[in-house]
Design a protein around this nucleic acid. Sequence first.
DNA 1: GACGTCAAGATGTCCTGACAAATGCTTGAC
DNA 2: GTCAAGCATTTGTCAGGACATCTTGACGTC
Lengths: 246, 246
Amino acid sequence: MSSPRITLDRSSPVPLYFQVAEQLERAIVSGEIGAGERLENEITMAQDLGLSRPTMRQAIQVLVDKGMLVRRRGVGTQVVHGQVRRQVELTSLFDDLAAAGQHPRTTVLEQLLVPADEQVSEQLQVGLGEPVWSLRRLRFIAGGEPLAVMHNYLPSSIVDLGDVDLEAQGLYSYLRDAGFVIRVARQSIGARGVRPVEARLLREDVDAPLLTMQRTAYDNLGRAVEFGRHAYRPGLYSFDVTLVDR
Amino acid sequence: MSSPRITLDRSSPVPLYFQVAEQLERAIVSGEIGAGERLENEITMAQDLGLSRPTMRQAIQVLVDKGMLVRRRGVGTQVVHGQVRRQVELTSLFDDLAAAGQHPRTTVLEQLLVPADEQVSEQLQVGLGEPVWSLRRLRFIAGGEPLAVMHNYLPSSIVDLGDVDLEAQGLYSYLRDAGFVIRVARQSIGARGVRPVEARLLREDVDAPLLTMQRTAYDNLGRAVEFGRHAYRPGLYSFDVTLVDR
DNA sequence: GACGTCAAGATGTCCTGACAAATGCTTGAC
DNA sequence: GTCAAGCATTTGTCAGGACATCTTGACGTC
């Protein structure tokens, strides 16, 4: 039975349930609340913090959705065993690496308008053959080792990539600055053998396996904003996913 | 502005918010509510159904978490564009395929107790060298084509696999029957070249790429119940994931 | 015509209160 | 001694209300 010290700032614009969730999460990853340990019950925690029970429940729900807590009716709420793995988030690879302390370098191979092929047309909801931005980039990790070839398509009707320097910042970072709020992304992860062009770019053997990812991202208007086909060197990258049953 | 007809059964044990979510989802996948279309506002929908606003919100939230709806404050709730892809769920491959109308066949290659190696010991939270169930299976799709080699480890202290026939039913299906409630799973998806043993089992060339997945599953007590290392033939399988920003 | 203000409409947050359902422990009957 | 009934505990569901905040469009002013 554990009850970490939590402080609330009611004058802050940060929602109360989020303040609680943040501090609870810190207490879990720091080990202040050990794996398998049980939390104080919702009603008591709410009273201790001067919160209502729904607000307390909302805070706990955030961490349940992250796979860090499990609830059982009639029993209580417990911390899940096992080290917490960082979740795949809705950022591009660039932001991912930068956040991890790496200093990724990017080379833009192609940045121009091309007619949409069948798959692009379907994923981005634009007419077949209509112009879409085609962005091909090669990404390196610190040390100069090539990590991935990335090929993105963006509808020219809502994005203008004409003057954007995408060697200096990640695509998702640019899209955020341009006012797009990415809310949903559908990814498909697979594998295949490397192609000759990729082998040269990634400095891999001709028979090397590659990890592939296709992604379509949608903004808060429900529009498809970006579709990408990417290939990663499997020794240097993998996708971590947490599934939660609800 | 769309408002599909929804019927409620207040005598049913199924929660009201879930009844609403289910019928809304059906209306979206069936196309009754088109992509990009806006929903009636929460308050009106709640009144029409004789529900409180929190219950209506909870129903909508279910579909937001599934990536089917997006909300914008001050504006409303919209259906996301793009075909809805079936989400990866917390079931084993067997259940996945069976649900998809396939008739998977399974061969058990190994089902015995082995001492836990370092990774298994760490993932399952058991002592190094302690006995754990080792389950190696080969899975075929309809037509007899091999699809994947699967290697699972289960702690012998909480599961007994001694007399279980895992050619007839999937592992997760058995675990459910045995009273385990799997709530959280952490997966890591990668790729590598095929190994000689696998190449023979999967009828692949010696240089073929494989899609790999490692998974640790936890039950509603927070215990690690299963750890697995699996390899799939990439032409026949891929992982679909939907990411939602909250 | 450009800009700022205001109001309407929608979701976001937070509160109080109540009952239902599952779990685990205790108690009592046999 | 064993099993079943009952009780306390805890999360799950639902209601109804209040105010905050963001977005959009209308209106008016400069």
